[in-house]
Amino acid sequence: MNDLREGSSKPAETHRRSFFTTLAAALAGIFLLPRRLFSSEPARERLRRKWGMVIDLDKCTGCQACVVACRAENNVPVAGPAQTQNDRGIFWMDMLEVSEGSYPDLQRQLTPIPCNHCENAPCVKVCPVGATFINEEGIVAQVWARCIGCRYCTTACPYSRRYFNWQAPSWPETMKNQLNPDVATRPKGVVEKCTFCHHRIRRAREKARAEGRELADADVRTLPACAQACPAEAILFGDLGSPESEVSRLARSPRAMRLLEDLGTHPKVVYLREAKWKE
Protein backbone atom coordinates (compact mmCIF):
# COMPACT_ATOMS: atom_id res chain seq x y z
CA MET A 1 0.00 0.00 0.00
CA ASN A 2 2.77 2.40 0.80
CA ASP A 3 4.71 1.20 -2.22
CA LEU A 4 5.65 4.40 -4.00
CA ARG A 5 5.79 2.85 -7.46
CA GLU A 6 2.34 1.40 -7.79
CA GLY A 7 0.62 1.67 -4.45
CA SER A 8 -0.47 5.25 -4.86
CA SER A 9 -2.18 4.66 -8.20
CA LYS A 10 -3.92 1.37 -7.38
CA PRO A 11 -4.45 0.99 -3.65
CA ALA A 12 -7.40 -1.42 -3.95
CA GLU A 13 -5.51 -3.72 -6.34
CA THR A 14 -2.52 -3.95 -4.01
CA HIS A 15 -4.79 -4.57 -1.07
CA ARG A 16 -6.51 -7.43 -2.85
CA ARG A 17 -3.23 -8.89 -4.03
CA SER A 18 -1.70 -8.88 -0.58
CA PHE A 19 -4.89 -10.49 0.76
CA PHE A 20 -4.67 -13.27 -1.78
CA THR A 21 -0.96 -13.73 -1.14
CA THR A 22 -1.59 -14.10 2.58
CA LEU A 23 -4.46 -16.50 1.92
CA ALA A 24 -2.33 -18.61 -0.42
CA ALA A 25 0.53 -18.65 2.07
CA ALA A 26 -1.82 -19.69 4.88
CA LEU A 27 -3.33 -22.49 2.78
CA ALA A 28 0.09 -23.68 1.70
CA GLY A 29 1.14 -23.59 5.35
CA ILE A 30 -1.80 -25.75 6.38
CA PHE A 31 -0.95 -28.32 3.72
CA LEU A 32 2.77 -28.31 4.35
CA LEU A 33 2.84 -28.10 8.13
CA PRO A 34 1.62 -31.60 9.06
CA ARG A 35 4.03 -33.21 6.59
CA ARG A 36 6.93 -31.31 8.03
CA LEU A 37 5.90 -32.11 11.59
CA PHE A 38 4.99 -35.74 11.25
CA SER A 39 7.31 -36.82 8.47
CA SER A 40 8.24 -40.38 9.31
CA GLU A 41 11.11 -40.53 6.87
CA PRO A 42 13.47 -37.63 7.34
CA ALA A 43 16.32 -39.65 5.84
CA ARG A 44 14.41 -40.16 2.63
CA GLU A 45 13.79 -36.46 2.30
CA ARG A 46 17.50 -35.88 2.70
CA LEU A 47 18.02 -38.02 -0.39
CA ARG A 48 16.38 -35.44 -2.61
CA ARG A 49 19.55 -34.00 -3.91
CA LYS A 50 20.00 -31.68 -6.81
CA TRP A 51 23.42 -32.09 -8.24
CA GLY A 52 24.95 -28.96 -9.62
CA MET A 53 28.25 -27.57 -10.71
CA VAL A 54 29.97 -24.24 -10.24
CA ILE A 55 32.61 -23.16 -12.74
CA ASP A 56 34.71 -20.21 -11.70
CA LEU A 57 35.80 -18.51 -14.93
CA ASP A 58 38.06 -16.16 -12.98
CA LYS A 59 40.05 -19.19 -11.85
CA CYS A 60 39.90 -21.14 -15.13
CA THR A 61 43.15 -20.95 -17.07
CA GLY A 62 41.73 -22.59 -20.17
CA CYS A 63 44.15 -25.51 -19.96
CA GLN A 64 41.51 -27.99 -21.22
CA ALA A 65 42.45 -30.68 -18.71
CA CYS A 66 38.71 -31.05 -18.02
CA VAL A 67 38.02 -31.76 -21.68
CA VAL A 68 40.65 -34.49 -21.83
CA ALA A 69 39.70 -36.00 -18.47
CA CYS A 70 36.04 -36.17 -19.44
CA ARG A 71 36.86 -37.87 -22.69
CA ALA A 72 38.96 -40.53 -20.98
CA GLU A 73 36.53 -41.09 -18.13
CA ASN A 74 33.39 -41.45 -20.19
CA ASN A 75 34.68 -43.46 -23.15
CA VAL A 76 33.89 -40.63 -25.53
CA PRO A 77 34.72 -41.91 -29.00
CA VAL A 78 37.37 -40.26 -31.14
CA ALA A 79 35.72 -39.01 -34.30
CA GLY A 80 38.94 -38.34 -36.19
CA PRO A 81 40.03 -35.11 -37.88
CA ALA A 82 37.78 -35.36 -40.95
CA GLN A 83 34.58 -35.96 -38.97
CA THR A 84 35.49 -33.34 -36.38
CA GLN A 85 35.99 -30.83 -39.17
CA ASN A 86 32.43 -31.61 -40.23
CA ASP A 87 31.22 -30.72 -36.71
CA ARG A 88 30.67 -34.36 -35.93
CA GLY A 89 33.15 -34.61 -33.08
CA ILE A 90 31.80 -35.50 -29.64
CA PHE A 91 32.68 -33.34 -26.64
CA TRP A 92 30.76 -33.97 -23.44
CA MET A 93 32.87 -31.22 -21.95
CA ASP A 94 33.82 -28.58 -24.46
CA MET A 95 35.84 -25.41 -24.36
CA LEU A 96 34.13 -22.51 -26.04
CA GLU A 97 35.76 -19.23 -26.87
CA VAL A 98 33.79 -16.10 -26.23
CA SER A 99 35.26 -12.92 -27.65
CA GLU A 100 34.42 -9.60 -26.12
CA GLY A 101 35.20 -6.11 -27.21
CA SER A 102 36.88 -4.93 -30.40
CA TYR A 103 40.44 -4.60 -31.54
CA PRO A 104 42.47 -2.73 -28.96
CA ASP A 105 40.43 -4.09 -26.05
CA LEU A 106 39.72 -7.50 -27.48
CA GLN A 107 39.48 -10.21 -24.85
CA ARG A 108 38.73 -13.87 -25.15
CA GLN A 109 37.18 -15.95 -22.46
CA LEU A 110 37.68 -19.69 -22.66
CA THR A 111 34.56 -21.26 -21.20
CA PRO A 112 34.33 -24.94 -20.27
CA ILE A 113 30.79 -26.06 -20.90
CA PRO A 114 29.42 -29.44 -19.87
CA CYS A 115 25.71 -30.27 -20.14
CA ASN A 116 23.86 -27.68 -18.09
CA HIS A 117 21.49 -30.27 -16.60
CA CYS A 118 18.56 -27.87 -16.92
CA GLU A 119 15.72 -28.22 -14.48
CA ASN A 120 13.39 -27.33 -17.31
CA ALA A 121 15.25 -29.28 -19.96
CA PRO A 122 14.13 -28.74 -23.58
CA CYS A 123 15.83 -31.96 -24.69
CA VAL A 124 13.72 -34.04 -22.32
CA LYS A 125 10.52 -32.43 -23.55
CA VAL A 126 11.12 -33.25 -27.21
CA CYS A 127 12.29 -36.85 -26.87
CA PRO A 128 9.55 -38.90 -28.52
CA VAL A 129 10.54 -42.19 -26.91
CA GLY A 130 11.35 -41.15 -23.35
CA ALA A 131 14.99 -42.13 -23.76
CA THR A 132 16.13 -39.02 -21.95
CA PHE A 133 14.80 -37.96 -18.59
CA ILE A 134 15.63 -36.02 -15.46
CA ASN A 135 16.52 -38.42 -12.71
CA GLU A 136 15.61 -38.22 -9.03
CA GLU A 137 18.61 -36.08 -8.29
CA GLY A 138 18.30 -33.62 -11.13
CA ILE A 139 20.69 -35.24 -13.59
CA VAL A 140 19.54 -35.05 -17.19
CA ALA A 141 20.32 -38.60 -18.21
CA GLN A 142 19.66 -40.90 -21.11
CA VAL A 143 19.17 -44.60 -21.57
CA TRP A 144 21.54 -44.87 -24.50
CA ALA A 145 19.96 -47.87 -26.16
CA ARG A 146 16.46 -46.44 -25.98
CA CYS A 147 17.41 -43.55 -28.26
CA ILE A 148 16.10 -43.88 -31.81
CA GLY A 149 18.48 -41.26 -33.18
CA CYS A 150 15.86 -38.71 -34.30
CA ARG A 151 18.12 -35.89 -33.04
CA TYR A 152 15.25 -33.70 -31.87
CA CYS A 153 17.17 -33.23 -28.64
CA THR A 154 20.37 -32.07 -30.33
CA THR A 155 18.26 -29.42 -32.02
CA ALA A 156 16.27 -28.52 -28.93
CA CYS A 157 19.26 -28.05 -26.65
CA PRO A 158 20.05 -24.33 -26.67
CA TYR A 159 23.59 -25.06 -25.54
CA SER A 160 24.30 -27.74 -28.19
CA ARG A 161 25.39 -30.11 -25.47
CA ARG A 162 24.08 -33.23 -27.13
CA TYR A 163 26.02 -35.20 -29.66
CA PHE A 164 24.94 -37.74 -32.21
CA ASN A 165 27.06 -40.78 -33.01
CA TRP A 166 27.38 -40.41 -36.75
CA GLN A 167 29.62 -43.44 -36.95
CA ALA A 168 30.36 -46.55 -34.93
CA PRO A 169 32.45 -45.47 -31.93
CA SER A 170 36.15 -46.01 -32.39
CA TRP A 171 39.31 -45.38 -30.47
CA PRO A 172 42.97 -45.49 -31.42
CA GLU A 173 44.43 -48.95 -30.91
CA THR A 174 46.46 -47.84 -27.89
CA MET A 175 43.36 -46.56 -26.10
CA LYS A 176 41.22 -49.65 -26.52
CA ASN A 177 42.36 -51.25 -23.29
CA GLN A 178 41.84 -48.03 -21.38
CA LEU A 179 38.07 -47.91 -21.73
CA ASN A 180 36.33 -47.28 -18.43
CA PRO A 181 34.26 -50.32 -17.43
CA ASP A 182 31.95 -48.12 -15.33
CA VAL A 183 30.59 -46.34 -18.39
CA ALA A 184 28.78 -48.15 -21.18
CA THR A 185 29.88 -47.33 -24.70
CA ARG A 186 27.27 -45.94 -27.04
CA PRO A 187 26.53 -47.51 -30.41
CA LYS A 188 26.23 -45.77 -33.75
CA GLY A 189 23.00 -43.87 -34.28
CA VAL A 190 22.28 -42.71 -30.75
CA VAL A 191 22.74 -39.37 -29.05
CA GLU A 192 25.01 -39.02 -26.05
CA LYS A 193 25.76 -36.41 -23.44
CA CYS A 194 27.38 -35.56 -20.12
CA THR A 195 26.01 -37.49 -17.13
CA PHE A 196 27.67 -35.46 -14.34
CA CYS A 197 29.78 -38.63 -13.88
CA HIS A 198 26.87 -40.32 -12.13
CA HIS A 199 28.86 -43.56 -11.90
CA ARG A 200 31.29 -41.73 -9.64
CA ILE A 201 28.46 -40.46 -7.48
CA ARG A 202 27.21 -44.02 -7.13
CA ARG A 203 30.65 -45.20 -6.08
CA ALA A 204 31.08 -42.35 -3.58
CA ARG A 205 27.68 -43.16 -2.13
CA GLU A 206 28.58 -46.82 -1.71
CA LYS A 207 31.83 -45.89 -0.03
CA ALA A 208 30.00 -43.59 2.39
CA ARG A 209 27.47 -46.34 3.08
CA ALA A 210 30.23 -48.84 3.85
CA GLU A 211 31.69 -46.34 6.29
CA GLY A 212 28.25 -45.91 7.84
CA ARG A 213 27.73 -42.23 7.10
CA GLU A 214 25.85 -39.91 4.79
CA LEU A 215 27.39 -38.66 1.58
CA ALA A 216 29.07 -35.40 2.59
CA ASP A 217 29.89 -32.25 0.66
CA ALA A 218 33.59 -33.07 0.86
CA ASP A 219 33.04 -36.46 -0.86
CA VAL A 220 31.63 -34.91 -4.00
CA ARG A 221 33.42 -31.55 -4.11
CA THR A 222 35.68 -32.55 -7.01
CA LEU A 223 33.93 -35.78 -7.91
CA PRO A 224 33.32 -35.56 -11.68
CA ALA A 225 36.35 -36.25 -13.86
CA CYS A 226 36.46 -32.64 -15.10
CA ALA A 227 36.46 -31.25 -11.57
CA GLN A 228 39.06 -33.73 -10.42
CA ALA A 229 41.38 -32.85 -13.29
CA CYS A 230 41.06 -29.08 -12.90
CA PRO A 231 44.39 -27.83 -11.55
CA ALA A 232 42.91 -24.47 -10.58
CA GLU A 233 39.94 -25.95 -8.69
CA ALA A 234 37.74 -23.84 -10.91
CA ILE A 235 35.14 -26.60 -11.21
CA LEU A 236 33.27 -27.60 -8.08
CA PHE A 237 30.47 -30.09 -7.74
CA GLY A 238 27.83 -30.45 -5.08
CA ASP A 239 24.24 -30.42 -3.96
CA LEU A 240 22.33 -27.33 -5.04
CA GLY A 241 19.34 -28.69 -3.14
CA SER A 242 20.85 -28.01 0.25
CA PRO A 243 21.27 -24.29 0.91
CA GLU A 244 24.37 -24.68 3.05
CA SER A 245 26.47 -26.63 0.55
CA GLU A 246 29.50 -24.97 -1.01
CA VAL A 247 28.01 -24.87 -4.51
CA SER A 248 24.77 -23.33 -3.20
CA ARG A 249 26.75 -20.68 -1.38
CA LEU A 250 28.76 -19.91 -4.53
CA ALA A 251 25.61 -19.91 -6.67
CA ARG A 252 24.29 -17.06 -4.50
CA SER A 253 27.43 -15.01 -5.05
CA PRO A 254 27.05 -11.73 -6.96
CA ARG A 255 29.47 -13.14 -9.52
CA ALA A 256 27.10 -16.01 -10.37
CA MET A 257 25.41 -16.32 -13.73
CA ARG A 258 23.92 -19.07 -15.84
CA LEU A 259 24.13 -19.49 -19.58
CA LEU A 260 21.16 -18.16 -21.58
CA GLU A 261 19.29 -17.55 -18.36
CA ASP A 262 16.47 -15.76 -20.13
CA LEU A 263 15.33 -18.98 -21.83
CA GLY A 264 14.00 -20.27 -18.53
CA THR A 265 15.82 -23.58 -18.76
CA HIS A 266 17.17 -23.18 -15.19
CA PRO A 267 20.59 -24.71 -15.71
CA LYS A 268 22.29 -26.40 -12.78
CA VAL A 269 25.71 -25.35 -14.00
CA VAL A 270 26.54 -21.97 -12.51
CA TYR A 271 29.36 -19.77 -13.80
CA LEU A 272 31.20 -17.29 -11.65
CA ARG A 273 32.74 -14.27 -13.28
CA GLU A 274 33.56 -10.76 -12.27
CA ALA A 275 31.91 -8.42 -14.77
CA LYS A 276 35.16 -6.52 -15.05
CA TRP A 277 35.37 -6.41 -18.82
CA LYS A 278 32.21 -4.48 -19.18
CA GLU A 279 33.45 -1.62 -17.05
Binding site: N135, E136, A141, T195
Partner: peptide, 10 residues
Protein backbone atom coordinates in the same frame (compact mmCIF):
# COMPACT_ATOMS: atom_id res chain seq x y z
CA UNK B 1 14.42 -49.06 -3.18
CA UNK B 2 14.85 -46.44 -5.88
CA UNK B 3 13.96 -47.53 -9.40
CA UNK B 4 15.84 -44.62 -10.92
CA UNK B 5 17.40 -45.73 -14.24
CA UNK B 6 20.75 -44.32 -13.18
CA UNK B 7 20.72 -46.49 -10.09
CA UNK B 8 21.64 -49.54 -12.15
CA UNK B 9 22.33 -48.44 -15.71
CA UNK B 10 25.67 -47.17 -16.84
Amino acid sequence: VSNDCLGCHK
